[in-house]
Design a binder for these strands. Structure first.
Length: 315
DNA sequence: AAGACGAAAGTGGTTGA
DNA sequence: TCAACAACTTTCGTCTT
């Protein structure tokens, strides 16, 4: 594929590229340029694009998949005829094991079947790449094995796991989006997300606001200039450390709002609030912080004055 | 009339005693 | 286990465009 060779952004020369497999885009993290958006492969991904070339991964047979409830393999303890050579005690032990295994596996398999169906539905609704579905399936399987699903609805755990998998792969969806897709309350998803990641020791770095920019920008109909301006503002804000402890979504939303003002693609705070899922108040607070710390106040005043002039010229 | 602004009270989660 | 705390939301009144 042609995009394999792209290592640097043709616009700014930065090598800080982000391969958004979800959308089939390669995006420059520095200037926001979308380098190739036609790279959408509808076929199955057989090649390994990751850095690691796991040559020992080559195996015969169908690839195992965590989106199949038993990884595509079955496990069974042999039947009566296999045990005739064992003495009585051992045979009894084996029988007990068999009963246990049967019970455990049927309960778990039932759970997994339902869960993976829901997972499939969710990820197709959210247009998630198969890599995320895989990871989510893997996490869920572990959760079931450790009995973490009990007392929680399967659906809410699936939603939480999807959220976690998205975060892990740096293509985060907001809790609101997953909530809308799954019909589960936002808080409930957050709860199972936290519970599962804590119990399974899954480390998740705080999400980077940049990861939200391109998605929000496209929904808002912003042009590429505004988008890269947003990323610019974002990285400045990041380097001035006025982002610690703050929700990354609010920061991304405010950066986009400012970029819109500066680039003449004005959107209301409510518009931004709707696509980002944070309230106007939060956007305002971040907005205030960013423009004061970045000394953008004068620039914004200028822009406002200019637009006013232009309006008066219409007469 | 719609948008922007900000104060005040409420929510749910984290942290540290 | 509980209280203090920070971030965010909800609600609402006021100012600006």
């Amino acid at each position: 594929m042609a995009t394999d060779n792209i290592k640097k952004c043709p616009e700014c020369g930065s090598s800080n590229l982000y391969n958004n497999k979800d959308k089939g885009e390669i995006v420059c993290r520095s200037c926001g340029l979308v380098i190739d958006s036609k790279n959408i492969s509808l076929g199955k991904e057989w090649r390994d694009f990751e850095e690691s070339d796991d040559s020992e991964m080559r195996r015969s047979g169908a690839p195992t998949s965590y989106t199949k409830y038993d990884l595509g393999m079955g496990t069974a303890i042999g039947s009566e005829s296999d045990t005739f050579s064992l003495d009585k005690k051992q045979r009894y032990k084996l029988q007990r094991l068999k009963r246990w295994q049967k019970r455990l596996s049927t309960v778990m398999e039932k759970n997994l079947k339902i869960a993976l169906g829901e997972l499939r539905r969710l990820s197709s609704f959210l247009n998630l790449p198969t890599s995320i579905e895989e990871e989510a399936g893997k996490i869920y399987t572990e959760a079931v094995q450790k009995n973490l699903v009990r007392g929680r609805s399967i659906e809410s755990v699936v939603a939480g796991v999807v959220y976690a998998a998205c975060r892990r792969q740096n293509i985060p969806r907001t809790l609101d989006e997953i909530s809308e897709a799954s019909g589960i309350d936002k808080k409930e998803i957050g709860r199972s997300y936290r519970y599962i990641t804590r119990e399974l020791r899954i480390k998740i770095l705080p999400s980077n606001p940049v990861d939200y920019i391109s998605r929000f920008a496209s929904v808002l109909g912003y042009g590429p200039k505004t988008q890269s301006r947003g990323i610019e503002i974002l990285s400045e804000a990041l380097s001035l450390e006025l982002t610690s402890g703050r929700g990354p979504i609010g920061i991304a939303a405010a950066a986009l709002y400012i970029a819109g003002l500066l680039e003449g693609e004005r959107r209301t705070q409510r518009d931004i609030s709707e696509v980002s899922g944070v309230t106007e108040v939060t956007i305002r607070n971040r907005y205030k912080e960013i423009i004061t710390k970045l000394n953008l106040e004068d620039e914004i005043k200028k822009i406002k004055a200019k637009t006013k002039e232009a309006e008066e010229d219409d007469f």
